[in-house]
Design a protein around this nucleic acid. Structure first.
Lengths: 145, 145
DNA sequence: ATTCATGCAAATGTTTTGCATGAGC
DNA sequence: GCTCATGCAAAACATTTGCATGAAT
């Protein structure tokens, strides 16, 4: 999924293309595999389109979410949410370092296993969230300050 | 894990037992397997100890979290957090109905599988979050309003 | 010309904090 | 008596919204 593809999808859904929107989309596409906060997205977008504003970031994230183009999550259940473009061709989960926040995509997904166990019972599965937390080797080897 | 056990753990960590704290603990223990919001906990605790206050609920949840006795999550990444007592003897994940919010504990956990794949690489695994989302049979059969 | 998008500032909702008071040990 | 816990009100924080203006089609 690249920025131009996203632009097409948005246009075909009746959305207009603005410099702010383009900046936000590009930032998201340049950071597939990473989690960005709304603030990260704002700051990176400002490099491309300086007048980009917080409301605009949130409003665009909302649109992208509705179109199922962005995945919203929030790491360790504190208040800040993080966003990532959904790359449908490359479904993956993450392992996240609890010290420095660095993430790494992992490609194993247990969903099929669950489907076999659960689908025909009470719930029809439609989505799932899996996040692993750990300490990356860099942080593990770093002496305590 | 029951309320009395929790009281002992808190006492042995130097925390005093108050009616508010006892109410909060009891509420949490009576709702293992469900997710409660801070507001839910406040309301249910008030039935047992009417003067219980929001700050007190949050402060106690913070203590319980620090002692790894409570798990904090937030369903579908909206702002409200949900809390559940960690039942160490009975590690489980949940499937959550996206229509009505009903949850169901599931006992399959893919962690061991991941450990084999990841541990000796860049990350030392210390925690994980797995949540499944679906539509429960009740909601599936309900006619659209 | 019309519709959608934006910027700003104010509002929202949850969670956190400071401080004085009160309760447990 | 000392320490921890609480209640209240205010602050903090991320996110959302109303409204007037501006840009895209």
């Amino acid at each position: 999924m690249n920025a131009l593809q996203l632009e097409e999808i948005l246009k075909s859904n009746g959305y207009k293309m603005t410099n702010q929107r383009r900046a936000i989309i590009e930032v998201l596409c340049e950071n597939i595999g990473k989690f960005l906060s709304a603030e990260d997205i704002l700051n990176l977008s400002k490099d491309k389109c300086p007048q980009t504003n917080f409301s605009t970031v949130y409003r665009n994230l909302e649109i992208l979410e509705e179109l199922d183009l962005v995945h919203k999550t929030n790491m360790d259940a504190n208040s800040t949410c993080f966003y990532e473009i959904i790359d449908l061709d490359n479904h993956h989960h993450h392992i996240i370092c609890t010290k420095c926040g660095k993430t790494k995509a992992i490609d194993f997904c247990p969903l099929e296993m669950f489907k076999a166990n659960i689908e025909d019972e009470d719930f029809e599965l439609i989505d799932h969230k899996l996040e692993l937390y750990g300490i990356c080797s860099e942080c593990k080897n770093k002496p305590k300050k």
